[in-house]
Each structure stands twice: as structure tokens, then as C-alpha cells.
């Protein structure tokens, strides 16, 4: 008995991995439905849906960049203080002192851009493939909300480095919100925690960016994907002659 076999025989191993390693269709099914993360998938999928042109993988890329964003974002939080002027200095520290800091920050920034970009493309793909039709109407609405949350996440993250780009981007943006009739002023006051873009605003944007919006995003994404599964999997281009 090799060591590998012995390990596979222990009760601890067997409590974790419940099936053997032989490559059988049974085990392949078990991989899917015994795994929390994979079981949004059905055990079998239509072969047609694997085609690249079916979805262009746009939803998948959006999800992948979201995962990258979560991983890098959590790591970046270890070196970030939401205060003035320390926030800006932390950016410099990431660049100069923290090993791989600048790589993570770049990754986070570019993944954010990619996510916004592919989310928009995903939405267009769904529209032109008419995948919003019943029973998927509500999932489309969730998708629109997700797009808004993604934009807000990207936007709230924009302020965090506290550089000129951030400060003036946020000044312009919140002044746009101010134009809303009746409640505009109040929205801006709430968003900034004051009348000017100050440390209060930084802290608010930080909490929104790191807690409120990600939690909302995760919940909505879960529902979104779950509904895709429940509504019969990804829908590609409408087939000729079928409604």
C-alpha cells in the first residue's frame, strides 16, 4: 500500500472527499453536486452552450474579474487607512515599500475597468440574444441593478487614493447628483457626510466600497447566477424557428 493509498483510506480523507478518484461519470457528477461552489452548475450541460459564440463568456469574464477584485481588494485593505493625508501616502507605500503592492493595486484597478466593460458588453449580448424574455425578465432587472452596483463600486473606489484624479472625479460626480430635483442637495450631503469632499467623504466611500456595495453585489450575483441555473442555463442566440 503506497502512502497515497493509505491517505485515501483514512477516515479523515474520506470525510472530506466522499468519492473515489476513478474517472467515471458518477464521480464527475458527484464533483459537481457535492461542491458548494460548483453546484450552481447542472451535472450535465447542453453541448451547444459550451460554444464560444453562445455567450462569448462575457458573464464569466465579469465574474472572474469580480473574483480578482475581491482577492486583491482584501489584500489592499491591509495597507490602507481611510484618512487624509495617510490614504495618499499608503498608495506611495504600496508602490515603494510593500512587496508586490504596486502589482496588486494595478491588478485591482485594471480588473475594475475590465469588470465594468464586460458587464456592459454582457448586457448588450443578452439584449441582442433576446435572453431577457420570460422567464428571465426579473433576472434582467437584477442584471441592470448589478451594473449600477458595479459602476458605484468602481466610482467609490475611485476616491480612495485621494489624489487629484480621485478628488476632482468625485467632486464632479457628486455635483451631478446635486442636480437632482428636491433631494439632490440631500443626496450629496449624505454621500459626502458634509458639504465638501473631505475626510468624511473618504470614510463613507471607503465603507461603501469595502462593505455595503460588495455585500450587495455578492448577494445579487448569487441570485443572478442561481436564476440562470433555475431558468434553464445560459441562453445563447435565439434559434431559427423557435420562440
Amino acid at each position: 500500500m503506497t502512502t497515497g493509498e493509505w491517505i485515501r483510506g483514512t477516515s479523515v480523507y474520506r470525510s472530506v472527499i466522499r468519492h473515489g478518484l476513478e474517472d467515471t461519470n458518477r464521480n464527475r457528477s458527484l464533483i459537481i453536486f457535492e461542491n458548494l461552489f460548483l453546484h450552481v452548475h447542472p451535472v450535465k450541460v447542453r453541448e451547444r452552450s459550451l460554444r464560444f459564440t453562445h455567450t462569448f463568456w462575457l458573464g464569466g469574464i465579469t465574474l472572474a474579474s469580480m473574483l480578482v477584485l475581491i482577492a486583491t481588494g482584501i489584500l489592499l485593505m491591509f495597507y490602507y487607512h481611510p484618512s487624509v493625508p495617510q490614504a495618499y501616502r499608503d498608495m506611495k507605500e504600496l508602490q515603494y515599500v510593500v512587496d508586490d503592492g504596486v502589482f496588486l493595486r494595478n491588478l485591482h484597478r485594471w480588473a475594475a475597468h475590465l469588470m465594468v466593460f464586460t458587464a456592459v458588453l454582457h448586457m448588450l449580448r443578452v439584449f441582442y440574444h433576446r435572453a431577457y424574455r420570460p422567464p428571465r425578465q426579473f433576472n434582467w432587472v437584477i442584471g441592470v441593478v448589478l451594473l449600477l452596483v458595479t459602476l458605484l463600486l468602481s466610482y467609490t473606489g475611485y476616491l480612495l487614493p485621494w489624489d487629484q484624479l480621485a478628488f476632482w472625479g468625485v467632486s464632479v460626480g457628486t455635483n451631478m447628483a446635486k442636480q437632482a430635483p428636491l433631494i439632490g442637495e440631500r443626496i450629496r450631503f449624505f454621500l459626502l457626510g458634509g458639504n465638501i469632499v473631505s475626510e468624511n467623504a473618504l470614510l463613507r466611500f471607503y465603507v461603501l466600497h469595502c462593505v455595503v456595495l460588495p455585500v450587495a453585489l455578492l448577494l445579487l450575483v448569487s441570485i443572478h447566477i442561481w436564476r440562470v441555473r433555475k431558468d434553464g442555463g445560459v441562453q445563447g442566440p435565439p434559434e431559427e424557428g423557435r420562440q
Partner: peptide, 11 residues
């Protein structure tokens, strides 16, 4: 490993 190295403060 790189993550652990990242988390170790250098200054």
C-alpha cells in the same frame, strides 16, 4: 507564500 510576504511589513 507571496501573500504572506506581502503581509509582512517592510518598514
Amino acid at each position: 507564500i507571496v501573500t504572506l510576504d506581502y503581509l509582512k511589513p517592510k518598514v
